[in-house]
Design a protein around this nucleic acid. Structure first.
Length: 448
RNA sequence: GGUCCCAUCGUCUAAUGGUUAGGACAUCAGGUUUUCAUCCUGGAAAUCGGGGUUCGACUCCCCGUGGGAUCACCA
């Protein structure tokens, strides 16, 4: 493999929102170019006037900007018609192409076909190895509708040739297109680039990942989901590639440094969304508190509308939140399930659930009253460590579940919540004591 | 169906002829402040099948089988 003056390109057609599969192809092209200090080109293949839309092109650009995959040059095929015409004419002049009657369809009277020499084409794929095709069955395939309306195979070959693309890195679904393109390229006298057909991303349900799969949401919707760009890049890079050691978390810079096209997997890889969320969690953990608050911003409106909300309290529970979320969906769920409410407003009393399964109501009243006394006479620093030291010996003696569950429940009113000591600290002395007191009172009055 | 590609735990993968086949996600069990989450420890879990080559095969060759891609005047 030659790695001098590397030029790679990503050539998407703007006929839909930029999705995850394209991200991976872009990433591999980007990584290979940057690793070799080469050039990375984006080429919008918008020759299909019917299906191409400017907003899709913009969506692609926005996606790349979000991901931080910067490119060196940008081209739009719809603006390069003259270049294609010149080359088509050249093919006609040299007898490599000819105008022919349309075969079955009569929407156009004539088309331009490539004169197939019916040769065998062999090429060495950087990932797959030697591949041989007999081009006879391809026939004289169409390369343009008219001299001004070229078709995919022609534009790709001309652009790659003119732009000096040295390495064509694309999905394996393009393998069958390669011999056709080599035929045109040879007729035009371009230097043959090196090919690297990267494995497809597969659906967990079988087959290649398609629009039908729930994983295939437009790239920017992952942003809306609270996936960090570095996490998505990290995850995508690891489908079909790995650094060869046990590292799982790698920054974009590290990926650039380590990326090796020759080590890319041959077989397709399944998109495992669970792992994406796990990786995202790892990146979330690295954020500073300020960065994390910034990250949470899109969801903060709902949080701020919780009755009793104060920023002061929110800052206190930030560590609790940080521990619990992998992406926005977790945060939204916390909000929806009321897991934030009890920090700001008193929970409803529930004298049924407050008693641990091995206890009686009387036990609970006794334990809670005892803790209340301990806390009331406690004058030290009100933090979870100290409070644990204060209460834990009693809990161990009387039964951890029997004591700790009611304590925690009286503070949060929830079956799921952080541990009692954290709750005591976060809520503060005044509120905590008031809640425990209220529960003791209620229990005493309740029947059974 | 033709052509082409691929094949290690459920998933992503490591092991460039010699390893008790390693790691991560997920899963299960135990522990941490008997809940939830986080974290820690441990377990279960794979070389598709059959032939070769070789002292020795996940690794090389052949044949099956399975999976996938592609067969447009779309890209």
């Amino acid at each position: 493999m030659n790695t001098d003056n590397v030029v790679t390109r990503m050539a998407p057609s703007p006929t839909g929102k930029f999705h995850i599969g394209s991200v991976r192809t872009t990433l591999f092209n980007y990584l290979f170019a940057r690793h070799n200090k080469g050039k990375f080109i984006i080429r919008s293949e918008d020759t299909d006037r019917e299906r191409s839309k400017p907003e899709y092109e913009q969506n692609m650009l926005d996606s790349l900007a979000w991901l931080g995959l910067e490119y060196d040059e940008f081209y739009r095929q719809s603006e390069r018609t003259d270049i294609y015409s010149t080359h088509i004419q050249k093919l006609i002049d040299t007898g490599s192409a000819y105008e022919a009657e349309a075969s079955n369809d009569d929407t156009h009277k004539k088309v331009i076909r490539f004169k197939n020499p019916n040769s065998k084409i062999t090429f060495t794929d950087l990932i797959l190895g030697d591949i041989e095709f007999d081009t006879t069955e391809l026939g004289d395939f169409v390369i343009a509708r008219t001299i001004d309306t070229p078709i995919y195979h022609l534009t790709v070959v001309v652009d790659d040739g003119v732009m000096g693309v040295t390495h064509v890195i694309r999905g394996q679904e393009h393998i069958n297109n390669t011999p056709r393109q080599i035929l045109i390229l040879e007729a035009l006298g371009f230097k043959r680039p090196e090919y690297a057909h990267i494995p497809l991303i597969m659906s967990p349900r079988g087959g290649k990942l398609s629009k039908r799969d729930p994983e295939v949401i437009p790239t920017l919707e992952y942003k809306d989901e609270g996936i960090l760009p570095e996490a998505l890049l990290n995850f995508m890079a690891f489908i079909g590639w790995n650094p060869g050691d046990d590292r799982e978390i790698m920054s974009k810079e590290e990926l650039v440094e380590e990326f090796n096209l020759l080590k890319v997997q041959k077989g397709g890889g399944v998109f495992n969304i669970e792992k994406l969320y796990w990786i995202n969690k790892q990146y979330l953990t690295k954020l500073s508190d300020d960065e994390f608050k910034e990250y949470l911003k899109p969801e903060m409106k709902t949080v701020e509308s919780i009755s009793g909300y104060t920023e002061e309290m929110f800052d206190k529970i930030l560590p609790v939140i940080r521990e619990r979320i992998h992406a926005f969906s977790d945060f939204r769920e916390m909000i929806k399930d009321g897991e934030l409410n009890y920090y700001f407003i008193e929970p409803e009393l529930d004298s049924e659930k407050i008693t641990w399964k091995t206890s009686t109501k009387e036990d609970t009243v006794r334990h809670l009253s005892h803790i209340l006394e301990m806390l009331e006479s406690y004058t030290g620093d009100w933090n979870s460590d100290n409070l644990k030291t204060l209460i834990f010996p009693y809990a161990e003696e009387a039964g951890k579940g029997d004591v700790l569950w009611p304590l925690r429940f009286s503070l949060s009113g929830k079956e799921k919540s952080p541990d009692p000591f954290t709750l005591l600290e976060v809520l503060g002395r005044g509120i905590a004591l008031k809640r425990i007191q209220a529960n003791v009172e209620a229990l005493k009055k309740s029947p059974i």
